[in-house]
């Protein structure tokens, strides 16, 4: 729907509510040629080109002045805000020291806080040179929304399910141009606390651009602002970066490799590096996707609720649960 149409509907609705007088007042556009001409009914209107969703053009957001503005905005607004809300602790930055930009950051996803959180803790050389791949059907649905996300998180639209040639090409091109990518391979936030199956986008881009993938494990955001939450909670979060994965495998193996790397990071973040390594070596790393079975059993397997202070004063959700 065009915004003009929407505005006209809004106006009509408002004047309907306000009654006749308001209708009279609002209906007096200046006559042509002072106002716009009417369109003759016999001439068909050309179809209006969609400018939203996956077709949203984000090129402006990567121009130098906008980048400068974003850097300033992130330093002044986003980072202090994230520091206050999520109190992130960061691990594994040393693993990034040897790697050359651009790279693909692949992270688990349980909250809207994830993207700003990761962006705010990235080392400086990546921080202002990373684009986030955001769901076209969610972040790019209106001009204002799209503009905000393009500006604040340097987002570019991508389809969740079947990636089109155009958006894949665009992401690949950005990688070629030297932009790092932040991707959530689960394709959406967790709905029940457990991770979803990974999609192939990150691996495909890595293989095509021959750039390494950095697995990232984000812990705790699901508690602060889970899917469907009505309010934001304050709390602690952690971000763990893993060793870069070189794209020297076929893409479908790479997908599994990324997924297990994130699971191993989760294990590490919950326990300790050494025992997590041992379990990884024995292929006993707990699954982030949770048990099969009915909804209640998956929910039950998440363990005690952090909300229930009376029962669990320590109040931290074990995730992933110990096998």
């Amino acid at each position: 729907m065009s915004t003009d149409g929407a505005r006209a509907r809004l106006r009509a609705g408002a004047s309907g509510l306000l009654g006749g007088r308001a209708r009279l007042a609002s209906r007096s556009p200046a006559p042509f040629p002072l106002g716009p001409p009417t369109w003759p009914a016999s001439v068909p209107r050309p179809p209006k080109r969609s400018e939203l969703g996956v077709d949203y053009e984000t090129e402006w957001a990567r121009r130098y002045p906008v980048r400068l503005a974003r850097a300033a905005y992130n330093e002044i607004v986003t980072r202090p805000l994230i520091a206050a809300i999520a109190q992130p602790s960061v691990d594994g930055l040393d693993r990034l020291e040897a790697v050359r930009a651009p790279v693909i950051f692949a992270a688990n996803h349980s909250s809207h806080l994830d993207a700003p959180l990761v962006l705010s803790v990235l080392p400086e050389r990546f921080r202002n040179k990373t684009v986030t791949l955001g769901a076209a059907d969610y972040f790019f649905t209106s001009q204002l929304r799209a503009a905000y996300f393009a500006f604040a998180t340097n987002a570019v639209p991508i389809e969740r399910v079947k990636v089109s040639r155009r958006s894949a090409q665009q992401a690949a091109l950005l990688l070629e141009e030297g932009w790092s990518l932040l991707i959530f391979p689960e394709g959406g936030r967790s709905s029940d606390g457990w991770a979803r199956e990974h999609r192939g986008g990150a691996a495909w881009l890595a293989a095509r651009g021959e750039r390494p993938v950095v697995p990232v494990y984000i812990k705790g955001t699901g508690r602060l602002l889970p899917r469907g939450a009505r309010r934001l909670y304050l709390g602690k979060t952690s971000v763990t970066f893993g060793a870069p994965i070189q794209p020297d495998l076929p893409a479908r193996h790479l997908v599994a490799r990324i997924e297990s790397a994130i699971a191993a990071l989760a294990d590490e973040a919950t326990t300790d590096w050494w025992s997590a390594r041992q379990r990884a070596a024995r292929a006993e790393t707990p699954d982030l996707r949770g048990p099969n079975g009915s909804e209640w059993r998956r929910a039950w397997a998440l363990g005690p609720s952090p909300k229930d202070r009376a029962r669990h004063p320590a109040g931290e959700r074990r995730w992933p649960p110990r096998a």
Binding site: E295, W296, A299, W300, G303, S305, D308, R311
Partner: peptide
């Protein structure tokens, strides 16, 4: 308790 509620009520 919240654990029981959250595991059953949403579904």
């Amino acid at each position: 308790g919240d654990r029981v509620y959250d595991a059953f009520a949403p579904y």
